[in-house]
Design a protein around this nucleic acid. Structure first.
Lengths: 196, 196
DNA sequence: CTTCGCACCAAGCAATCGTTTGCTATGCAC
DNA sequence: GTGCATAGCAAACGATTGCTTGGTGCGAAG
């Protein structure tokens, strides 16, 4: 009985390398893609043998799901903290965008796995991944719904425009040139005037 | 001496199935991903055996490159035709966006292969793919440079915002609900006012 | 001092991978 | 009708894949 649910057993040891394993897998999934990265490569990057991974995760797909969950958790936490400090709807949206962008950089490997894994990836974990994706997007949907004065612009297209641009950013974003706050401010500035 | 360059030999027969093979490969690469789709699956979808693919393409990566080239050619052609009918800079950009979106739908499989294949995919064809990508993006860069009155907005961020949103559109676009022209019009309308 | 669960290692399983090889049937050119 | 290029088929190659199994060192609990 391996896996991540150690419910009725003893607590994990302090030298547990599950987190290290997750980082290594995220790195390789991000760089090479899910199918191109082998369990042997992942194990080697974490300093163990391929069979040992199955003590921590039931399958390669469950490993992917765990990365997705951890990435979504981190991003959601960053966004939640950011919008809690603002009250104005536009400021909240801008803060959320900056936090989202910042999270894509800070947790680059996890984020790229999330973005590159298509919603129709198939497999047994597909529905659970789609659920995580939907739940995270709901946050942004709510922020955009809260904006005043829709005007003649469809909120749905505004959401797609903004969310698409944000998720595409790992392709072009250069940390030494751009800052999350600057990009978010510019993006929001371009859109804000269209709703007045 | 197989491969796509039949320079000094005879012309292909009318029953040549290279195009059918390319369509099948695009379909499978798009649906399952490059590594998940096997040469045997592709061959079966095209009604042949896996070894027969190597008469038309030297390797799996060359097959990917051929799909990328064909997709880029079709998209570029659509964009070129669309902007030729317009003179106003904003109208030209909107027409290019509509053509780009229309191309993503009309050649869905080819387009998704292009978008999902990351610029740092690695392998021997990586540089050639990056080149195709860069050349296509240069079209949009020129259209945005031609816009009047930059104002206080950085053209680079405008380009990233728009291009990111366009390339993310296959995720949410529903042909029965949206039309490329409508989406392009809405997107441009949201951005246009910010430059005045 | 014994026991037990944690966190692995070492070895190997069947299956599948991209690719190569030898051969063949078809059709056009001369 | 002979010669050659086209467009495959049939079968196999070594390598790699995700995963399983049996065992083991170790630290803590009794």
């Amino acid at each position: 009985m391996a896996g991540s649910s150690q419910s009725l057993t003893r607590s994990p040891r302090p030298d547990n390398r599950r987190e290290l394993l997750l980082d290594a897998a995220a790195r390789l999934f991000s760089d090479e893609g899910f199918h191109a990265a082998s369990m042997r490569d992942i194990a080697k990057a974490a300093g163990m043998l391929s069979g040992s991974i199955y003590y921590h995760f039931e399958s390669k797909e469950e490993l992917l799901l765990a990365i997705y969950e951890e990435g979504a958790r981190r991003l959601a936490e960053a966004v939640e903290n950011a919008i809690a400090r603002e009250t104005d709807p536009w400021a909240r949206l801008e803060a959320a965008c900056a936090a989202h962008l910042g999270g894509l950089i800070a947790h680059r490997d996890y984020a790229r796995v999330m973005i590159q894994t298509p919603p129709d990836a198939g497999g047994s974990v597909e529905s659970r991944i789609r659920d995580l994706r939907r739940r995270y997007e709901a946050r942004f949907r709510a922020l955009i719904e809260a904006l005043p004065a829709p005007g003649d612009i469809d909120r749905r297209y505004l959401r797609m425009l903004l969310f698409g641009a944000l998720n595409w950013s790992p392709v072009w974003f250069r940390p030494e040139r751009d800052s999350p706050e600057t990009v978010a401010k510019q993006f929001i500035a371009m859109l804000r005037r269209s709703l007045n």
